[in-house]
Simulated assay, not measured.
Amino acid sequence: MSTSLAVSGVPFELTPSQGSKWTVAPDRVEVLAPAHSDLFVDPSGESGTAAETMLNAVTLLGAPGAGDFVFSARVGADFRAMFDAAVLLIWADERHWAKLCFERSPAGETMVVSVVTRGVSDDANSFTVDGDAVWLRVSRIGRVFALHASTDGDRWHFVRAFALGDDIGDVQLGFEGQSPTGDGCAVWFDQVSFARTTLGDLRDGS
């Protein structure tokens, strides 16, 4: 059985996925994503089920409880292969989840990418990042989730807003690392913050 971990800045415990080995320090969270690990439901129907790919993704998740929140972290990765990524993850069930990624693109650039899964996955590229780290933020406003990213931790850029579905109950929230096409990827998270507050303006990032 996995042991829950306490992460500074997060007021609820987080549980690592089976077999994953997260390192939690006072100011940093790290994990090595294994080779060919991912969390994605191919809309063509040709990949495995979300349950199968979830078993191969390294996650660290906990239940934030009811109500609005704002969750953020600076994230980085030892990018080696296409789609290596450090991720903030919202998880309802194996067919309803969303991730905000700092990811290596097929062109070798590092980008902010989002994936929303409602039965199958819908992914979209946001913007490229000139550097080895970026701030990511996930917020809940009623039944709506909003994703933002920042290159300086101050000015936030809107990525997307969405709802996971009418019948979605409690969600889990936390971190993920992935290396879908590579031989593994070290990912890290610091400056982690969770606040039970309501985002002022969904699209301008205030």
Rank of each mutant, 00 (worst) to 15 (best):
A77D: 01
S20N: 03
A35W: 05
G76P: 04
S47T: 13
P34M: 02
T59S: 09
L32W: 12
G19Q: 02
G9C: 07
A124P: 09
S20G: 06
S37R: 05
W97Y: 13
D38M: 09
E13F: 10
F12C: 06
E103K: 09
P11M: 01
H36F: 14
S121A: 06
R80V: 14
S47W: 14
G19H: 04
G19N: 02
S47Q: 10
R104E: 14
V58T: 15
V31L: 02
D27W: 06
G9N: 08
V7I: 08
V70G: 00
E103A: 05
T117V: 00
V29D: 02
V31C: 10
L89F: 11
L14E: 06
D93M: 03
E30G: 09
E103D: 08
G119M: 02
R74Y: 07
D122N: 13
S20P: 03
F83R: 14
A33C: 04
A73K: 04
V112P: 02
P34C: 03
C101I: 10
E52R: 12
D68Q: 00
R104M: 15
S72R: 11
G76A: 01
A98M: 04
W91Q: 13
F40D: 09
D123A: 10
T23D: 12
S44G: 11
W22A: 00
P16K: 04
D38I: 09
R80I: 14
L55N: 15
D123M: 12
T59G: 01
H96E: 08
L89H: 09
S20R: 05
M82G: 10
F12P: 07
S37T: 03
R28M: 11
A66D: 15
S20T: 07
V7A: 06
A51N: 11
Q18P: 13
M111P: 08
L32H: 15
S114G: 14
V75N: 02
V58K: 15
V75D: 01
H36D: 09
E46N: 15
E13M: 11
V41W: 08
A86C: 07
A85L: 08
A66K: 14
S37V: 05
V112M: 02
D38A: 11
L100N: 07
V58Q: 15
F12Q: 03
G65Q: 00
P26Q: 03
E103H: 03
W97T: 05
G62Q: 00
A57Y: 03
D68W: 00
S17W: 00
K99N: 03
S47F: 10
D38H: 12
E30L: 13
S20V: 00
D42T: 12
G9T: 05
T117W: 06
A98Y: 01
V112C: 03
S37G: 01
V120G: 10
